[in-house]
Deep mutational scan, measured.
Amino acid sequence: MQRVNMIMAESPGLITICLLGYLLSAECTVFLDHENANKILNRPKRYNSGKLEEFVQGNLERECMEEKCSFEEAREVFENTERTTEFWKQYVDGDQCESNPCLNGGSCKDDINSYECWCPFGFEGKNCELDVTCNIKNGRCEQFCKNSADNKVVCSCTEGYRLAENQKSCEPAVPFPCGRVSVSQTSKLTRAETVFPDVDYVNSTEAETILDNITQSTQSFNDFTRVVGGEDAKPGQFPWQVVLNGKVDAFCGGSIVNEKWIVTAAHCVETGVKITVVAGEHNIEETEHTEQKRNVIRIIPHHNYNAAINKYNHDIALLELDEPLVLNSYVTPICIADKEYTNIFLKFGSGYVSGWGRVFHKGRSALVLQYLRVPLVDRATCLRSTKFTIYNNMFCAGFHEGGRDSCQGDSGGPHVTEVEGTSFLTGIISWGEECAMKGKYGIYTKVSRYVNWIKEKTKLT
Rank of each mutant, 00 (worst) to 15 (best):
P175W: 04
R140G: 09
E73Q: 08
I17Q: 01
D95W: 07
N138L: 09
V30F: 15
G403Y: 13
C119E: 02
L20T: 02
R3A: 13
C97G: 02
N151W: 06
C102H: 00
E86D: 09
E54T: 07
L20N: 01
Q57P: 11
K362L: 07
W88A: 10
Y444N: 02
P239T: 01
V242A: 04
N38T: 15
I284H: 06
E86A: 15
K311N: 06
G21Q: 04
Q167V: 05
N59P: 04
G106W: 02
P239I: 01
T342Y: 02
V153C: 04
Q408Y: 13
E259I: 04
D249A: 02
N80C: 04
F87C: 03
H400T: 11
N343Q: 07
V4R: 12
P44Q: 07
G427F: 00
E53T: 10
A307K: 11
N59W: 05
N245K: 02
L130A: 09
E79A: 15
E66Q: 08
N222W: 07
E208K: 10
V181E: 06
K234D: 11
F395S: 02
R294Y: 01
G254P: 00
V56R: 06
C145K: 02
S156M: 10
T389C: 09
C382F: 03
V227Q: 12
T461Y: 15
P197Y: 14
S255Y: 02
W118L: 13
G246T: 05
T194F: 12
N306M: 06
E434R: 05
R140Y: 06
M6I: 05
C108T: 00
S107M: 08
Q408L: 15
F55M: 15
N48V: 06
N306P: 02
I454W: 00
F388K: 14
C28S: 14
L346Q: 08
D150Q: 10
N113D: 11
G280K: 02
E420D: 14
S430V: 13
I256G: 00
H267N: 04
A308H: 11
K188G: 13
E116L: 15
F78W: 09
T225D: 12
K438T: 12
D95L: 11
I316Q: 00
N245G: 03
C382E: 02
V296N: 01
I309Q: 12
N138M: 10
S25V: 15
S70E: 15
C178N: 00
M65W: 06
K438G: 14
L325F: 13
L325Y: 03
S70N: 14
M8W: 12
T218V: 09
T290Q: 07
L52Y: 15
A366T: 15
K362M: 09
N135M: 15
F348Y: 12
K446Q: 06
S49F: 07
R294N: 00
R379G: 06
T215C: 04
E288L: 05
R404A: 10
V374Y: 03
E193R: 07
H400Y: 14
Q237C: 04
V451H: 04
G412F: 09
D111T: 07
E66L: 05
F87V: 14
V195Y: 11
R226L: 08
H34K: 11
E116R: 05
A265Q: 03
E159T: 08
E54K: 08
E270P: 04
I334F: 00
W431K: 08
R364L: 08
N127M: 14
G357R: 12
T389P: 12
L369W: 09
G246F: 01
M394A: 09
G122S: 05
C252H: 00
G439F: 04
G439K: 10
L327Y: 05
D338L: 03
D405K: 09
G427M: 00
K339F: 09
L372F: 13
K168F: 15
C268D: 00
N104F: 04
K311D: 03
A317T: 03
E286T: 07
F221S: 11
D223M: 11
V269Y: 04
G402V: 13
S187T: 13
V331R: 00
G58I: 07
T381P: 05
G160N: 07
D200C: 04
A37N: 05
I344A: 15
P235L: 08
C145D: 00
G432Y: 10
M437N: 05
T215Y: 07
I344L: 11
Y441R: 03
Y22C: 10
N48K: 10
E433S: 12
T445A: 05
N310P: 04
G253K: 07
C128D: 02
A164P: 01
C108W: 00
K126F: 11
V92K: 15
C102I: 00
K109T: 11
V269P: 02
A266E: 00
A436T: 14
S329L: 04
V257S: 00
C28M: 03
V353S: 07
K446D: 08
K455H: 12
A397H: 01
K188F: 13
R404P: 14
R46L: 10
T287V: 13
G253D: 03
A26I: 12
E418L: 11
W88N: 15
E320W: 01
E27W: 03
K260E: 03
T84V: 05
I112C: 04
N36C: 04
D322R: 00
L103E: 12
R191V: 11
T332H: 06
I390M: 09
E73N: 10
D93G: 15
I429D: 05
V242Y: 00
T133A: 15
F224H: 10
K152S: 12
I40W: 06
D111L: 14
L14A: 06
C382T: 02
S255C: 07
E401S: 08
N127A: 06
V451S: 14
L32H: 15
L367M: 05
G125Q: 02
E208F: 06
G351K: 02
L346S: 03
E82Q: 15
A279S: 03
Q237E: 05
V243W: 11
F78A: 04
G125L: 01
K440F: 04
L346G: 02
C252Y: 01
N343K: 04
V199D: 11
V4T: 12
I336C: 01
A266I: 02
L163Y: 00
S187I: 11
T342G: 06
E270M: 03
R294D: 00
P333V: 00
S365F: 06
S11R: 12
V227S: 11
S11P: 08
V326F: 09
L327R: 05
V228Q: 12
A233L: 07
H303E: 10
D111V: 15
Y22N: 04
V181D: 06
N245L: 03
F71M: 14
S423V: 11
S182K: 06
G442Q: 14
L103H: 13
H282A: 09
G398E: 06
I112H: 15
A164W: 03
P120N: 14
R404S: 15
G105P: 02
I316L: 08
D232Q: 09
V4P: 07
Y201W: 11
P324S: 06
A250R: 08
R75D: 15
S329H: 12
E35R: 08
M6G: 14
N5V: 12
A266Y: 03
A337R: 01
L369N: 08
Q241S: 05
S406H: 14
F78P: 15
P120E: 06
Y371P: 06
F55I: 13
L325V: 03
I429G: 14
G236W: 05
S148C: 07
K387D: 14
H282T: 12
G179E: 00
S169N: 14
G421A: 07
P333M: 01
G351A: 12
T381H: 12
G105N: 07
D93E: 08
T133R: 12
F348H: 07
Y312D: 02
I15L: 07
V199F: 14
F395E: 00
G13K: 14
R191N: 15
Y352K: 02
D95S: 15
C178Q: 02
